[in-house]
Nucleic acid binder design. Structure first.
Length: 479
RNA sequence: GCCGGCGUAGUUCAAUGGUAGAACGGGGGACUCAUAAGCCUCAAAAAAUGGUUCAAUUCCAUUCGUCGGCACCA
């Protein structure tokens, strides 16, 4: 029986174009998914789009569009990232407007309801007529909207369904205690632990259909639709075919150590709300939540259009290629802290590591091989890669990248110190031995690169199999 | 305000109770298999004050700075 592994990104909310944060999350999850496959796991890799809720409802209306058409357009752009970023093509792409997902979410609701964790109560919301929006306390100063301080905040009473989040405090704390690696990195684990320790409040999980119709109908109550978070989180299991497909669910959710990759803004939803929801439905919790930091502009300044320091994935791929972007978010960006990104930084890393480092090394070794070896070397893939894969298994993608580039440097240094290109002129046999040893090492580099830069890894393997130097450099240096 | 993290070369990061390491970037040099790449080499750092200690960048305290969390933002 082969081992199974499940990994998912969060589903981007489709109220704007894909940005660098999405790209980073998609790429990193892809790296882990690919690396598990290489370790012979049967992998289920999920991503998709979150398409319900007030915001989309409002924005579609503002754009004068039918909501479905509005979200269709965006969903297509996000689905386009799969190809753009060279993600593994068998990734599952779920949309929360998919019929099956909607039914699945309703079933999930019914389970929570049946188990006694959903109830109805009057819900007071603070509403700013100026914004035409519901406001939270943190958005108010002196009980007035920050944007419209001259208008009184209206209190609106409405009946909503509530989820008994408060009932799960102890179970969540137990979960965290018995699974110290449940949330990665540890400081995020502490954060969520402290949040839960402070006490949990039940939250509203429905909206009045008369006010906001863009949602999944609440089972048995046509006047309400399911609050977008409650619906969206269920995608992590609906994508597996839950509840009908018991076999898949068993294989990937119960036995696939489900991992959820997300940004730091998602900590609470992924590691507390969703876990409580699963418990309420009588299902098993996720295995691990991995929390990325945010990408910022240079100098740690928040990216913004007005500062003109935004970077978008399309431009980067167009100018440097998908692999340069994959390299950057894996090797140059901190795994868990906020990190800067800019075209300039990408440019520097491209030249230093891809052109001067990897690309140049491939050229110099394969030139020696082509000129001096009579035939391609025989490769036996049996060296131990466990040290490398262990890094990836712990989501230390950056350290894994570092390990590869250390080997690249070591090979450059070896060539410099031992000069096989000279040796081969005086002692052919010895020179050929040195060169073929280098080719073997290069092949190992390609194997390690496989999950990070899949296309380049494949190119290198082909060059080695044909014993050819690349016709065009792998990564042409850019000025 | 409360809680937590951080403050090390130009930049991004590392290690350490006893001469502070790396990568990128910058200066210089010898070579040539290679993408004017690679290699060698040089310059370059511990926010401030006080304490513990034979000895502190490392432990403690305070100050300053900075970042994050403090619930419906999908």
């Amino acid at each position: 029986m082969s081992k199974s592994f499940y990994i998912t990104t969060t589903l981007p909310y489709v109220n704007s174009d894909p940005h660098m944060g999405h790209a980073m999350e998609f790429i990193r999850a892809d790296v882990i998914a690919r690396s598990k496959k290489l370790q012979n796991f049967e992998v289920f890799f999920n991503t998709g789009t979150d398409e319900h809720g007030q915001k989309l409802f409002n924005e579609a209306k503002k754009a004068g569009k039918n909501v479905k058409e509005f979200v269709d357009e965006y969903a297509e752009r996000f689905e386009g990232l799969i190809k753009l970023l060279q993600m593994t093509p068998d990734v599952h792409f779920i949309r929360t407007t998919d019929k099956h997902h909607e039914k699945s979410a309703q079933h999930f609701w019914e389970l929570c309801d049946k188990n006694g964790f959903i109830y109805k109560k009057a819900y007071k919301i603070k509403y700013c007529v100026g914004c035409e929006l519901e406001k939270t306390d943190s958005e108010l100063i002196n009980n007035r909207c920050i944007l419209h301080p001259n208008i009184e905040i209206e209190m609106i009473d409405e009946e909503n369904y509530f989820f008994k989040f408060s009932a799960f405090q102890k179970q969540l704390l137990d979960l965290y205690k018995s699974n110290p690696d449940f949330v990665i990195p540890d400081f995020r684990m502490n954060e969520i632990k402290m949040f839960v320790e402070r006490g949990l409040e039940d939250f509203s999980i429905s909206r009045l259909k008369s006010k906001m119709s863009w949602g999944i109908p609440v089972p048995g109550d046509p006047d309400h639709v399911i609050y977008v978070w409650f619906d969206a989180l269920v995608n992590y299991i609906s994508t597996l075919g839950w509840p009908e497909d018991k076999e898949n669910f068993e294989k990937f959710w119960n036995n696939g150590t489900p991992v959820q990759y997300c940004g730091k803004d998602n900590l609470r939803m992924q590691s507390a709300m969703w876990q409580a929801m699963l418990l309420a439905a009588g299902l098993s919790h996720s295995h691990q939540i991995v929390i990325n930091g945010f990408l910022t502009g240079e100098g740690g300044i928040k990216m913004s259009k007005s500062l003109d320091n935004t970077v978008n994935p399309y431009n980067v791929v167009e100018k440097y290629g998908a692999e340069a972007l994959r390299y950057y978010v894996c090797g140059e960006v901190s795994m868990f802290e906020d990190s800067p990104i800019s075209m300039d930084l990408i440019h520097q890393s491209y030249n230093a590591k891809l052109a001067n480092g990897l690309g140049n090394l491939v050229s110099r070794i394969m030139k020696m091989a082509e000129d001096n070896l009579d035939k391609p070397i025989e490769i036996i893939e049996r060296e131990d890669m466990s040290e490398y894969f262990n890094l990836l298994n712990n989501f230390e993608i950056g350290k894994a990248v570092q390990m590869i580039w250390q080997e690249i440097s070591a090979m450059d240094l070896y060539i410099q110190n031992n000069q096989p290109f000279k040796v081969v002129k005086t002692d052919k046999e010895q020179g050929q031995k040195m060169i073929s040893d280098l080719v073997v090492r290069l092949y190992s580099v390609a194997r390690m690169l496989n999950p990070i830069l899949p296309e380049t890894a494949e190119k290198i393997k082909i060059l080695i199999k044909k014993n050819k130097t690349p016709e065009v450099p792998l990564f042409l240096r850019k000025e």
